[in-house]
């Protein structure tokens, strides 16, 4: 498989570059931050547009509802804080003032999942995708690399309605071209194959690419789907692929409960039941460690994807 590595960067920097570009191109975009400007890479936007940047302080509930209020009059607010404080901490504010009220707020969430690393479980949200995809009116996006995070950040400004955009901290390979087309709700087919389908999001797309190298050496043909939009889910892409491969692995840096895998299984159970294996965190909190140590210990590493693919293939019979 020929996947070219274009560089190495963190996805949060993709958000920062996308936001800075929006600052130059869309006068209605405003940014709010709860004391994490540097961590969210919002500095460039702040420097170029100080009058459109709002430092809220450590008060995330206030931030979400100020953002909701700012939409009245036509502004497009982007909120920035860690994923944990962008979701669980402010779920009721998002539910009532953003999702139910259908406000055009873009909730931009960094340091998602285990790969936040050493800060430990208090900050490692693994439930956010589930919480956000349960909210009516909410679009949920988990881009795969730096370039795609930048593209997604720019794309959501033109999408009318609430969006949850999830990205992370670790430096990872860039493999999506800078000029690639990003369409909300339309999955990327990274690679075509016929034995097993892997559907992944976020950092697990790269881990899946690593897994595929090993699987192909064993003569297994893998189709890889980058499901960057968890909601609305690209059902057609799933069904088209699974009709061919007849088995599927889902891979995500999130709880198995409530995540991408569950969303996919809901589609398959209704329309095309096939064996499915789930790579994700299995109903446990994380802990301190390096990002890569954590991915290994909690079962979301390359080896786990390989094993899941072999299991799915075996179950297909």
């Amino acid at each position: 498989m020929e996947i070219e590595i274009l560089g190495n960067k963190d996805t949060r920097s993709g958000f920062g570059e996308g936001l800075a570009e929006l600052g130059r191109t869309n006068a209605n975009v405003v940014a709010l931050c709860a004391d994490l400007t540097g961590s969210l890479k919002m500095d460039a936007f702040l420097k170029e547009n100080p009058e459109r940047f709002f430092q809220i302080g450590i008060a995330e509930a206030n931030m979400m509802c100020i953002a909701a209020g700012m939409t009245i009059g036509g502004k497009i607010p982007f909120t920035g804080t860690f994923a944990n404080f962008s979701t669980g901490r402010v779920y009721d504010q998002i539910r009532q003032s953003i999702a139910y009220s259908q406000k055009n707020v873009k909730i931009c969430a960094s340091h998602a999942g285990l790969t936040l690393g050493e800060d430990g479980a208090t900050h490692q949200t693994l439930e956010d995708i589930g919480m956000m995809r349960m909210l009516p009116n909410m679009t949920v996006i988990v881009p795969a690399d730096f370039n795609q995070t930048k593209q997604a950040t720019i794309a959501i400004a033109d999408h009318q309605g609430p969006v949850y955009l999830r990205f992370g901290r670790p430096v990872m390979p860039i493999f999506i071209k800078p000029d690639a087309l990003f369409v909300i709700g339309k999955a990327d087919i990274i690679k075509e194959g016929h034995d097993v389908t892997i559907i992944a999001c976020g950092h697990l797309v790269w881990k899946s690419i690593e897994a595929i190298k090993v699987l192909e050496e064993r003569g297994i043909s893998v189709e890889l789907i980058n499901m960057h939009t968890i909601k609305p889910l690209d059902e057609a892409a799933i069904l088209r692929s699974v009709a061919k491969t007849k088995c599927v692995v889902t891979a995500e840096e999130h709880m198995i409960n409530g995540g991408l895998g569950e969303a996919v299984s809901q589609v398959l159970a209704r329309k095309m039941p096939v064996p499915q294996e789930f790579v994700g965190v299995n109903d446990t909190f994380g802990e301190s460690g390096t990002p890569m140590e954590l991915m290994t210990k909690y079962g979301i590493d390359t080896e786990d994807i390989i094993n899941a693919a072999l299991k799915a293939l075996a179950r297909k019979g």
Partner: peptide
């Protein structure tokens, strides 16, 4: 508890506009 924050947001947008 949410309406004061909402009002602040709307008031800020009035100023921006």
């Amino acid at each position: 508890g949410q309406g004061l924050s909402v009002g602040i947001g709307a008031a800020i947008t009035k100023k921006l506009n």
